[in-house]
Design a protein around this nucleic acid. Structure first.
Lengths: 348, 348
DNA sequence: CTGTTAGCGCGTTCAT
DNA sequence: ATGAACGCGCTAACAG
C-alpha cells in the first residue's frame, strides 16, 4: 500500500499540487470541472491531508495540552468532559498527560518537590509537540505558583491556581452560604460544621460562607459546633459522634465533603438517631456514592463540567488573542436528597 | 521574543545545523569540545526541538489516539490510567478523543447508527494527525464490528470488541465462577443470580460461569433462582424482593453489578432481613459506592487498570512490528467486604 | 480568473 | 564536520 500525498493526487488528476491544495482548502477559485476531477481522485484514494506537514508550515496545531494531576480522582473526568465539549466545537484537539499523582505521591501533594520535575517534564514535552496552550487540572484546590514554567505559552489552571495566571474555580464561599441558607429555610438554627483540614483553601472559603450566613441570619455562633476533620470518612464519623454527644447537640451539620458525611451518617445511626428526622446533614461534592446511601445525602454539587468548559474557553480566548477575559467562577448547586428535614423541635 | 530553531543554535555555536542535530540525538560522534559548545548554547536559549518538524521527516509521531466512548463513565478513567502507565514508559503520547456517548445517546448505544459517523470522524481526525495507532475504550462490552475503519492503522479495542481485531477484555466467566466458588466455600448451596440484560455479552458469560460452578459443585439448579434485571438499581430491588418471597429463598445472591446489588440491599432491609446474616450478596464492578454502603458490598473488582496496560502493550507491539501477540485476558478479583457470611442454616 | 512553478517550515541524514 | 536534499502541504509570484 503506497502512501499517498498531495502530489499523488495532483498526478492522477492531471493538475498541480497547488490546485489540489486550493480545492482542499477553498483558498482560491478553481474551475468546477477541475475541482470535481480532483475531488473524485481524493475520494477514490481516500486521501487525507497530513496535519503534521500542515502544522509545520502554518505553525498551528489546533492542539492543546491537558495535564491532569490524576485522571482517576473523582473531579477530573467531568472537567475533561467539559474541556472536550468546548474544544470539539472549536476543532481543537487534546494531548492528554496524566501525572498519576495520587499513585505517585499519595496525599503528599503539598510538597511539590516530589513531582515538580515530573510536572515540568510534562510541560516540556507538550511544548515540543507545539501545543498552543495548556490546561492544568488539579486534584485538590491549592496554590501551584512556581510549579511549572510554560515559557509564555498560555496556561489555564482549574481546580487549583497559580499567582498571576488564569484559573477557573468554583465559588466555595457561596456554596456553603447557600447550604446554610437552605438549612435555615428548613427551620434549623443550631447548625454545626465539620470542616476539612484547615490548611486547605476550600476549607477556609467554606468556613467563611458558613460564618457569613450565621451572621446574616443571626444564628447563635457556638465554637463547639466547629469541628475540623481530615476529609476522611473516619474523621466524619468521630466528629459527628462528638457533636451528637453535646449537651445541646446541633439539629443540622454542614459537612465539607461527602466522605465525611458518610461517616457522620454511620455515627448517627450507631447512636440510634435517624437522619433526617433527628439530624439533618448536608455534604459537599456530590460524589456518586452519596446518592446510594440510605438516606441519600443532600449535597452541594461541584460545577465540574462548567469548569472544564470555562477553562477551555479562557484558554481559547488567550490563544486567539481575543481579549475578552470573562473568567466566571461558576456556582455549586444543591442536590436535594433525603438527609435534610426540619429540626425535631419544629415538629413538636 | 524570537522563535529559535536549530539553525539559530548552529549560528551561535559556529557549527552547521547537522552537527547540532547530531549532538541533540547522539546520532553520530561529535568532538567533545564542539559538543560542549553546542550544548551550552542550547541551554542558554532554552532550545527545544520542534517535534512537528521531526515527525514530518521521521514519519513517527510517538503518539497514539485514544477514543473513549465517554470519559465520565466509571470504567474509563482507570483504563486510561493504565494506558498512560505503559505509554509513559515507552515515551508515547496520547491524543484523547471523548465521544461523550452517554450524554449524546444515553443508553441507546446498541443502535450504532446514532454515532457511527461521529466515531468515524474521530478516527479520521486522529489519522490526519498521524497517530501510530488507536485504542478504543467502550462503555459497555459489545461487538462494534464495522463501526469504524482505521485504514490499516493498528487498533486495539478494550471493554468492547470487534471481529478480526485485537481486543482486551477481562474474564467474565471466570469471575462469576470464582464468586460462586467463594460462596460455596462459605457454606452456601442455595445461590440465586440476578443477571443484567440478556442481550449483553457479560451477562451471558457471567451466567456461564454461574452455571458451570453450579454443575461442578453439584449444587441444585433452580430456575426460580434466575432473575434477569436491566442493570438498574430498581430492578435489583424488585428482583431481590421476588427471590426473598420464594417458599425456599436462596441464602446468597450473585448480582451482576453493584447498582443492582445496592437495590437488593435495600429490598432485604425492607423485608427485615439482615445482610449478611440472613442473606449474602456478591456484586460486580467494585464501584466506589459499594464500599460505603452498610454493609459494604463484597464484589468482583474489574481489572480496568490492567486492561489499559495490556491494551497499550498490545498496540505498542503492533506498532513496533513485534510479533509477540501475547494478549492476556486479565482476571477479576474478589473484594471481600461485609455482605457475605455463612448461610443461616449453617449457624443453626 | 484559473492553473503552474518553486520556495518555505524545521530537523534529519547522506554524500562529500 | 558540513552542505544540501528531503518530508508534505501551503502559498507567493507568475503565466496564460
Amino acid at each position: 500500500m503506497e502512501k499517498i500525498g498531495i502530489k499523488e493526487i495532483a498526478l492522477r488528476a492531471n493538475v498541480s499540487t497547488a490546485t489540489v491544495s486550493y480545492v482542499l482548502n477553498g483558498t482560491r477559485n478553481v474551475r468546477p470541472k477541475t475541482k470535481e476531477r480532483v475531488l473524485k481522485v481524493i475520494e477514490e484514494l481516500n486521501y487525507r491531508p497530513n496535519d503534521i506537514a500542515k502544522s509545520l508550515k502554518s505553525k498551528r496545531t489546533n492542539t492543546i495540552g491537558v495535564i491532569a494531576e490524576d485522571v482517576t480522582v473523582f473531579n477530573v473526568p467531568e472537567i475533561i468532559d467539559g474541556i472536550n465539549e468546548y474544544a470539539e466545537k472549536n476543532d481543537m484537539h487534546i494531548l492528554l498527560t496524566n501525572l498519576r499523582l495520587q499513585k505517585r505521591v499519595g496525599y503528599d501533594y503539598a510538597n511539590t518537590d516530589h513531582y515538580q520535575k515530573h510536572a515540568q517534564d510534562a510541560v516540556s514535552n507538550l511544548l515540543s509537540k507545539q501545543v498552543e496552550g495548556i490546561i492544568y487540572i488539579g486534584i485538590h484546590p491549592r496554590d501551584l505558583t512556581g510549579l511549572i514554567n510554560t515559557y509564555n505559552k498560555p496556561i489555564v489552571y482549574t481546580y487549583c491556581y497559580a499567582q498571576n495566571e488564569c484559573s477557573i474555580q468554583y465559588n466555595d464561599e457561596q456554596a456553603s452560604y447557600d447550604a446554610i441558607e437552605y438549612l435555615v429555610s428548613k427551620g434549623h438554627s443550631r447548625i454545626a460544621i465539620i470542616s476539612g483540614l484547615m490548611d486547605s483553601i476550600p476549607s477556609r472559603l467554606r468556613f467563611n460562607g458558613y460564618y457569613k450566613a450565621l451572621t446574616e441570619f443571626q444564628l447563635p455562633f457556638d465554637p463547639q459546633f466547629i469541628k475540623v476533620g481530615d476529609w476522611g470518612l473516619n474523621s466524619g464519623y468521630h466528629l459527628a459522634a462528638e457533636l451528637l454527644k453535646l449537651q445541646e447537640p446541633p439539629t443540622a451539620i454542614l459537612i465539607m465533603n461527602d466522605l465525611m458525611a458518610a461517616g457522620a451518617l454511620r455515627a448517627a445511626s450507631e447512636q440510634g438517631m435517624v437522619v433526617p428526622t433527628d439530624l439533618s446533614i448536608v455534604g459537599f461534592d456530590n460524589r456518586e456514592f452519596s446518592a446510594y446511601l440510605s438516606p441519600g445525602i443532600t449535597t452541594m454539587d461541584l460545577p465540574l463540567h462548567d469548569m472544564g468548559i470555562l477553562a477551555m474557553k479562557a484558554l481559547y480566548n488567550r490563544i486567539s488573542g481575543t481579549n475578552e477575559k470573562t473568567e466566571e467562577t461558576p456556582l455549586c448547586k444543591l442536590i436535594e436528597r433525603e438527609s435534610v428535614a426540619g429540626p425535631r423541635a419544629a415538629l413538636k
